[in-house]
């Protein structure tokens, strides 16, 4: 319990580094504003106040909520479909070989092409956005899960078998557990992609949400409002990544840091 509290403290303390990086970006942004003027690049302070205005206005909450919900639903469906299928395929070399070229094809289709197709199928609805997200994200999750299980240490399977550990406990305790080393980075990439694709899809299909708001900003040539929406979407993404994925990952990978404790340089 104490060590867990210590790790949470460490995690929060590491936030300073993130803050330093964000400050650096803001500084470059400010320099860009001073060079190009407010019409091309509004200054960070103006944009941040626009962000505050958007976030504080209750009528904008459903817009932000819609984008977040679509991205998360797409991500959830991809987790269930791509992730679960990937885990299963990792156990079968034949299935893996069959799906690999299929994946190359799926990953090679640009999300924009999906949007066009899905728009024809479903029109400007929630479904369009979610399906586009799934098409972009599920192959990534599938690959992460399949790579993880297929590269698991089979000697551990043998060991467990020698001690009479059943197949279910071997699959969950060894296979799934080892798959997480490649699956969690894939999940981090996938969650980023989910938000990006959701916004893009909303913008192009006119399905509302943050993408719709961006389209409005573009129509009125309102650069500060456009940037404010970008900041909000990136903020959502950062929240998902640092509040959900990272803590989960560092808890699972405790053993990796055990050999080089905090503050000890390697």
């Amino acid at each position: 319990m104490v060590s867990r509290l210590g790790r949470v403290g460490q995690f929060i303390w590491a936030g300073w580094i993130g803050l330093a990086a964000l400050s650096l970006i803001t500084a470059v942004w400010q320099a860009g504003h001073e060079a190009f003027g407010a019409f091309i690049l509004p200054d960070p302070a103006t944009v941040l106040s626009a962000v505050a205005v958007i976030i504080l206005a209750p009528e904008n909450h459903p817009i932000i909520g819609a984008t977040a919900e679509r991205a998360m639903r797409g991500l959830g469906l991809s987790l269930l479909g791509g992730g679960a299928l990937g885990l299963a395929c990792g156990y079968s070399a034949a299935a893996m070989r069959l799906t690999r070229p299929l994946l190359t094809v799926l990953l090679g289709v640009p999300p924009i092409a999906w949007i066009v197709l899905v728009m024809i199928w479903f029109g400007s609805t929630d479904t369009t956005v979610i399906v586009t997200v799934v098409a972009a994200v599920a192959p990534v999750l599938f690959l992460g899960a399949a790579e993880g299980t297929s590269h698991r240490d089979r000697r551990l399977d043998d060991m467990a078998r020698a001690f009479g550990v059943g197949p279910a406990r071997r699959a969950f305790g060894l296979g799934l557990r080892q798959a997480l080393t490649t699956f969690l980075p894939a999940l981090a990439v996938a969650s980023g992609t989910a938000f990006k694709v959701a916004v893009m899809s909303e913008l192009l299909t006119n399905a509302g949400g943050a993408g719709g708001a961006l389209a409005d900003a573009r129509a009125t040539l309102d650069a500060s409002s456009a940037l404010a929406w970008i900041v909000i979407v990136v903020g959502l993404l950062l929240a998902v990544e640092y509040l959900v994925i990272h803590p989960f990952r560092s808890e699972l990978e405790r053993w990796r840091t055990a050999a080089n404790p905090f503050g000890v340089k390697t």
């Binding site: 551990l156 009479g164 406990r169 557990r177 699972l252 053993w255």
Partner: peptide, 25 residues
Amino acid sequence: AVVFQDPRLLDWKTAAENIAYVLRH
């Protein structure tokens, strides 16, 4: 029981948990 040439321990479990892993059943 088998003792292999390499220890074949689960990296993500402590020594005690590694021993417990084969006991649980």
